[in-house]
């Protein structure tokens, strides 16, 4: 099959709806297994960290949330670019579906980071380079969501958000690098260790499980939300009406 015909097939909401329907149960089962399994493993079976004690167990939820939130923004910007360049409607739906999921995951990683900070650093919030970067990522998500809500015209909203997401994605490396640089100027002496240096290999295995689980969970949610977008936008087409009301009407 040629590239362009694959592209057209993927761009068809109907084909995507049917294909994703077959994928959904597998994603749900696998992601929940990995997330729950990894969490139980990390909570109860991994030995405590010799420096941080037991608080490091928050890592198994904090790190996956932050990683997936970051990846989700890049996916959103890519979908936006595809929508702008090839005018693929499905990409606009994917983009709209990602924003609330990504924002929730970013919020989650900020919150778990704060709760992790209290027992380890003795304070809820530290203006650490990585935390600050995640906070800015959260702001970028909120900007996209706010812009989308402000438009009444759905197509214009999608295009405007695509432009903003791309501008944001281009700026993210610059922002992260600036924040790193800013932090290196003001590094407080009280934070003497970083996450990775004390991590024992045996502690990483549950992290791999929850990380994969979170990616799959994100994929599952993304499909769920995109399918709802498809139903809402294609509500006047024959295939959607047949699908919802049965073909025998």
């Amino acid at each position: 099959m040629s590239i362009s015909s694959t592209f057209h097939k993927w761009g068809s909401p109907r084909w995507f709806y049917q294909f994703s329907g077959r994928l959904l149960p597998w994603l749900a089962i696998l992601s929940l297994l990995l997330l729950v399994g990894g969490a139980v493993w990390g909570l109860a079976f991994v030995p405590a960290d010799y420096k941080q004690g037991n608080s490091f167990r928050i890592m198994y939820i904090h790190v996956p949330a932050a990683a997936v939130a970051m990846g989700a923004y890049m996916t959103m910007a890519t979908a936006g670019a595809i929508h702008l360049i090839w005018r693929m409607k499905l990409a606009a739906m994917v983009m709209k579906a990602i924003a609330p999921i990504g924002a929730s995951l970013t919020f989650l990683s900020l919150l778990t980071g704060a709760v992790w900070g209290k027992p380890t650093w003795g304070t809820w919030w530290v203006w650490d380079a990585r935390i600050t970067s995640v906070l800015i990522l959260f702001f970028l998500y909120l900007g996209v969501i706010a812009l989308h809500q402000a438009f009444e015209n759905r197509d214009a909203a999608a295009k405007a958000c695509a432009v903003l997401a791309i501008v944001g994605a281009v700026n993210i490396p610059i922002i992260y690098w600036s924040v790193e640089w800013w932090y290196s100027l003001h590094q407080p002496a009280s934070i003497s260790f970083t996450g990775e240096s004390t991590i024992h290999p045996s502690m990483l295995r549950p992290l791999m499980a929850t990380l994969c689980g979170m990616y799959l969970f994100f994929g599952w949610l993304l499909l769920l939300y995109t399918r709802i977008e498809i139903l809402e936008r294609e509500k006047n087409t024959r295939w959607v009406q047949d699908l919802i009301c049965g073909e025998s009407r």
């Binding site: 969490a39 004690g53 709760v115 027992p119």
Partner: peptide
């Protein structure tokens, strides 16, 4: 209890 860190860890999860 997780030797004192339980509330933080369980709250996060």
């Amino acid at each position: 209890s997780m030797s004192g860190h339980g509330s933080y860890v369980w709250f996060s999860y």
